[in-house]
Design a protein around this nucleic acid. Structure first.
Lengths: 220, 220
DNA sequence: ATTAAAGTGTAACAGTTGTTACACTAAAAA
DNA sequence: TTTTTAGTGTAACAACTGTTACACTTTAAT
């Protein structure tokens, strides 16, 4: 499964009680070089894995053999943390090291023990998962909207709620199109139509909402 | 916020230690009648809520004032369990009683305490959330596929993995179309084309995969 | 300053999907 | 059985989106 020499099934104990991890915590750390497969899609996994240095990318192997990139994960961040507790704990993606990286691995039972003795750890774990659920829910909502103008409206109204009528987006047009799951020229067309209709105005990454009622009607 | 007479902020203690909930658990129970708003979109919530009898529906108020049904929740099931731990704990949906129902409410701090003293409770909570994350991820994958034939292929190949080349689906064509987020006649057209091409055959809710390689190519 | 690269606006056309309508069949109710 | 209802197959057409191509602008690199 992997190219490192670390024995994957041996766990050590940590030596300093830092108030977060107790000094008798059972864990293992393994190093990977750039390009290593950290996990392959279909591997089973019964430990909490945390990227502690470096970064990895995840990609999904579709049924026809194509590779679809999912996301990039930079240290420090857990790797599919919810996942070790699911009924069917098989890794859904390939995980590949983008550079030299280190992976902390804590067995499931030890995770449960940590949770019961370290409230901070428990709370942080829960918060992470809750935020992830909210992220997924919101993403699902966005993709449920069928028209391009509707997706743009959803995005801009969301920004509006936190930042008002004038704001800037971090993404350029190409990235935005990818994020919305549409073709770039189609996005440009829809946007220029919305400008013609006096709903919004855009200048590079700066957006203004000119007619919020018309914008809301596009959500239908 | 609600029509019941129970004091929403008073919590009692449970009286029998059933091995799952301890006898000093802090909680409250409130009853709702059919049609009551249990929560409104935007309400904040710092307690774990469990539907213990009856059922509720959740719906989302979109920016233009339309109502979009999300899901129906039958007892016994927690209500947005991940959610109380998120950074921004505002209810994302309306929750409405479908019939006479009872809601168990356990304050967040008490949930954390329960988790640390009842491993079963902790584990079940984690498993529930993990499964939900997996469900959302899979739904996201399905909606990311752009063509109708691709969505059909994804669905059928998933069934194939667990049940082989011949199986039946629980949904009829109308429900299936809604699930895939496409128009019913469009789904029928795509399916009959796939039948013409010798990829699948369908009879009512029975499906056969005739040419799995062609089916996999549709995922691109 | 010049060149190269990245990002954007736009148009023509093809392809897919949604809409609407209607006939037909199967299943449920009277 | 008859009637009603739900579910399905199909067609014509409209609407929308993707594809491809190219000009133009802005930014970065040489």
């Amino acid at each position: 499964m992997s190219d490192s020499t670390t024995d994957w099934n041996s766990f050590e104990k940590i030596h300093d009680d830092n108030g977060y991890f107790p000094n008798d915590m059972i864990y293992s750390i393994r190093k990977h070089q750039k390009g290593d497969f950290v996990f392959r899609q279909g591997d089973s996994c019964d430990a909490l894995c945390v990227v502690i240095t470096g970064s990895v990318k995840t990609e999904m192997v579709s049924e026809n053999g194509n590779l679809m990139p999912i996301e990039t994960i930079h240290a420090p961040r857990p790797l599919a943390p919810a996942f070790i507790f699911s009924d069917k704990n098989i890794f859904p993606v390939n995980v590949i090291a983008l550079n030299e990286m280190e992976l902390l691995r804590i067995p499931k039972n030890e995770v449960l023990r940590l949770m019961s003795i370290r409230p901070d750890f428990l709370q942080q774990f829960m918060t992470h998962n809750a935020n992830r659920t909210q992220f997924l829910t919101q993403r699902l909502q966005l993709l449920s909207i069928k028209t391009i103008k509707g997706k743009i409206a959803f995005l801009l109204l969301e920004k509006h709620n936190s930042e008002g009528l004038v704001f800037s987006l971090a993404k350029n047009q190409t990235e935005l199109a990818e994020y919305l799951g549409v073709a770039r020229p189609s996005l440009a067309r829809s946007m220029s139509e919305m400008s013609d209709e006096g709903i919004i105005s855009t200048e590079k990454k700066e957006y203004k909402i000119l007619n919020i009622n018309k914008l809301k009607k596009l959500l239908v």
